[in-house]
Design a protein around this nucleic acid. Sequence first.
DNA 1: GTGAAAGCGCTAACAG
DNA 2: CTGTTAGCGCTTTCAC
Lengths: 348, 348
Amino acid sequence: MTEDSNPITYSRRFPTIEDVARLAGVSTATVSRSLNSPARVREATRQAVEAAVKELGYTPNFGGQALASNRTNTVGAIIPTMENAIFARAIQALQETLAARNVTLLVATSQYSPAREEDQIRTLLARGVDGVVLIGSERPASAYELLDARGVPFVILWSAPANTPHVTIGFDNASAAAGVALRVVEMGHRRIAVISGITRDNDRAQARVAGIVAVLENAGIPIHPAYLTECPYSLNDGEAAAIRLLTGTDRPTAIICGNDVLAAGALRGARILGIDVPGELSITGFDDIELATAVYPPLATVRVPHRRMGAAAGDCLMRWIVEGKRPESITLPTEFMDRESLGKLRNT
Amino acid sequence: MTEDSNPITYSRRFPTIEDVARLAGVSTATVSRSLNSPARVREATRQAVEAAVKELGYTPNFGGQALASNRTNTVGAIIPTMENAIFARAIQALQETLAARNVTLLVATSQYSPAREEDQIRTLLARGVDGVVLIGSERPASAYELLDARGVPFVILWSAPANTPHVTIGFDNASAAAGVALRVVEMGHRRIAVISGITRDNDRAQARVAGIVAVLENAGIPIHPAYLTECPYSLNDGEAAAIRLLTGTDRPTAIICGNDVLAAGALRGARILGIDVPGELSITGFDDIELATAVYPPLATVRVPHRRMGAAAGDCLMRWIVEGKRPESITLPTEFMDRESLGKLRNT
DNA sequence: GTGAAAGCGCTAACAG
DNA sequence: CTGTTAGCGCTTTCAC
């Protein structure tokens, strides 16, 4: 036990709980209790510890804490993308809810790829997250098995419980999209096309299309297969899809889009072709992100409870993690936002 | 040493490195080496370990690893907001670069508030991040002191080295904005207004305004104080600011905006007032996010090297963390994107 | 209400 | 190339 074996180099070691204990004249156990459950120590003791902490600039070592407590106070979320604002507000609300409980949010992206998502799940689990937030319910069983094997609580956002046994915090995509279709039909449109996001591996996109189709069928409106298109969620793809639809024979008078980005792209496509919206063509979106009112005409769309989903996800997850019992799924309402991009069918 | 002291409850304990070692018939050290520096073990050994790992479904415990190695393989980034896409591409590129090195990115937001940013820095440091990425160079000294006290490597994005001794990976906001102003002047405009983001605590916004003002002064164009406005980075605020400018006396013929969101807002404001862009009014943006071409007319703006900044940040930071020596700052080029929202001054 | 002490799972000298 | 052996810093029984 050589002391000061290296008197020259000043060791850049951060104060540990032991340093605090020594300075405060208590044991490390008391420091720990003082910090984690202050109610269990005498007030005077707590203050002494607090003073020592402050004087030393002590911060608990994350690794030590994680190792000993078997918790990281970290929750992971995997969203398809950060490139558009769709998930931003939900993530923001989630982060705020978690921060209030002193847990940190790790955000990863999957780029709408199931394989990447599974990788990200693996990474998060390796990081020892205490809980996980996912978007949508459709993914390979192997992904769910990873989560199950670790026994890590997880919740699914953006979907409703219909198709999955897991805990969902979302809304009914099918009926929300059906609501849009109904408005479009009510406006007198009969030649109605759909630009959906890629439906493969995406239960939300599938449900939205299903909701729309059901309404059209119910209204006795024939659905020309060429009217049912899908493409990646990007401005350019939306534009291209719209141009394809609008230059075909029997041009639609309304295009229902799977989200606002596609709708904004479709709007651009219509402009390129010199087609007036809503005079000659109605376009609707979905999500009600800022973009919906940045374009002209502003997009009729569906307001999705972004912030409430994020906040509820944080609450549910933390309750699950702390109390150990699985929460109930939550289905939130959506709201149709009637705006200028949707208009009455012009008498032609 | 009581074995099987609890034969009833099946302990849900995850396999540890010791389990792997036992099954593979080697020591824990060899397992560790096998996993972390495979080159240092015999191939046969490595395979045996790999087999054992697979059979047991072993994943290293994060806390243990962090504690023993004093590294978390985690880097934190604090961006002002996720609500618009400004930082999304940079973050995406950063994440990819880090992932390639097996490090995880922790993203936090400050909502453009220095106090929140400082909190987030504290949180990240408590998380034991190995490095930090910040946006912009202007913040209270106390924030830098936090970082310095921990000796954690950090890089600053979006700024140039002019105003800060720290490592920056960005571009010259002043000259990029000056480039825009120059084009506007070249188009014949003399009544030129500015809608900047809030300049307080924001060196990028300050630099952009400074760049613009310098060009105008140099061109002998008087700058009416009422023409120099600033507001938060939002569509609504941009719209309101534009309406204020456009309903005042001596209406400007061009508005240079601090970013694309403000410009899109200004465009909306002009539309509300029935002012044609670019016929009666030119508007420019900054950033070249997707929004710039989603609106009509598409925004003349400045393309910022989002992805390259993100990737370079990851590279520099990892080199700094691993090799221990501070990298040089990097200044990347920007590009003016000439689009329809900027037009020649109409002969009135 | 507090202290002593036993690990949590891993890495990194150090020997061999 | 591999094994032995200390800890890393913290939480948590278990006594007192």
